[in-house]
Design a protein around this nucleic acid. Structure first.
Lengths: 227, 227
DNA sequence: TTGACAAATGAACATCTGTTCACGTATACT
DNA sequence: AGTATACGTGAACAGATGTTCATTTGTCAA
């Protein structure tokens, strides 16, 4: 959910306004130091801090470790930009890299995803990334009914971020080396073992040894086209 | 004087096409090295060389000594660009009109052409409407776990079209007057009675008399923000 | 063949740029 | 007072990034 514009700090609003002008003028986003100069912020770390706040608030998407890896999320109500917002709401295009099936590990995009094939892209609202770096994010189509205990059907589209670790409570795609099986579960590390909790509230958790459980990515959201 | 597109070298055309895709995907221009990787150019200096050629040809503007300081010149005829713009999916903003709960009938938006508060709008790719008229379409947040046999969790967002009839196989929101209950099921009319089939493949259908079953709308798609 | 020119290579370099960390300041709450 | 939280400062660091240059390759005309 997007935080209201007037609830942002003055600095954060200044950053947004500056970015709007800058992108329009130059065609590419400003660097952190340029933002700092323009908004009278002395330290790059403060700019960085506020940029992350803007990501949380839903106004910005960042690509990590990439110079000028910023993009304003359109479709958010920013005073002075209303016209543009209504004309074109923001979405991102994610690589649709294939299927997720129970019997195989999740196939990852080779490296920091260079997928630009037109047919392999899917449009999603930027909100569905929940602030994740688009470069690490991709989509998979669920094949088979094996994810049913994750409340996910055949044909559903899963938006994931590639990562090999997770925090307690994350829904992750894991490869169970003992079972030769990919599954989607909520992840709870418990010392030597890991509790994997199905999304379906009436189903029981399973427990696996931590070293037989490879985290492949975190599930950010799910799209379902009914019928 | 803009050089004709077909007179550019293959590498230069590749660079332009890559840049189109990249900017669309990430919202900022690629680095020289990224261009090189994508277009199979081994050396950064060759990319640089060709970028300068593209500037001469009128396709590009560069900002010196600035990372990703590239911008494609607008208004230049580049094959594929126009098509891409047209193919670019639109996003729509649907009214988020409240909750769907088992214990109440689905509340409808009174009529089309209403004013909705900014916070009550949700951004969805137009594909999720599957061709339905946006004026008849709205979104609901699922409350409670009663829709679990429809493979829908608490917190899921259901995109529906308002309608009071349905075709066999549609997933519909129905109000069962005998049970005082709203439920989401696949709809199969069978003469006097109606078979309502849960989305969950392991659950049994229920049968109701046709006149105790009010169709409120058809489910078009489902959005889930995990966690 | 020779010369001229466009295009490409590979490496080195200086700077740009995001990230991180230890620390400081202000405010509110217990 | 003590604590927690949000916000800010300044500096350092590692890696990303544009630029440059000597050299090589390919093409084409004289």
């Amino acid at each position: 959910m997007v935080k209201e514009y007037h609830k942002l700090s003055e600095r954060q609003r200044n950053i947004i306004q500056f970015m709007l002008n800058y992108v329009e003028t130059f065609g590419f986003p400003p660097s952190i130091r340029e933002i700092g100069e323009a908004t009278d912020i002395a330290s790059t770390s403060v700019v960085n801090y506020n940029l992350n706040k803007l990501v949380e608030a839903g106004y910005l998407v960042r690509t990590n470790h990439v110079s000028r890896g910023l993009r304003l999320v359109e479709g958010v109500n920013i005073p002075g930009q209303r016209k543009r917002v209504q004309a074109q709401a923001q979405h991102l295009r994610l690589p649709l890299i294939g299927h997720i099936v129970a019997s195989k590990p999740v196939q990852m995009p080779e490296d920091s995803g260079q997928h630009y094939d037109e047919d392999d892209l899917i449009d999603v609202p930027s909100a569905m990334l929940k602030g994740a770096d688009p470069a690490d994010t991709f989509a998979l189509i669920v094949k088979g009914d094996s994810m049913i205990d994750a409340m996910i059907r055949e044909g559903d589209i899963v938006i994931m971020r590639r990562q090999s670790t997770a925090q307690a409570g994350d829904m992750v795609a894991v490869w169970l080396t003992d079972n030769n099986e990919t599954t989607l579960k909520y992840y709870y590390p418990e010392g030597e073992r890991v509790r994997l909790q199905p999304a379906h509230p009436q189903m029981d958790a399973i427990y696996v040894k931590a070293d037989t459980c490879q985290i492949r990515g975190k599930v950010l959201s799910v799209l379902r086209y009914v019928q």
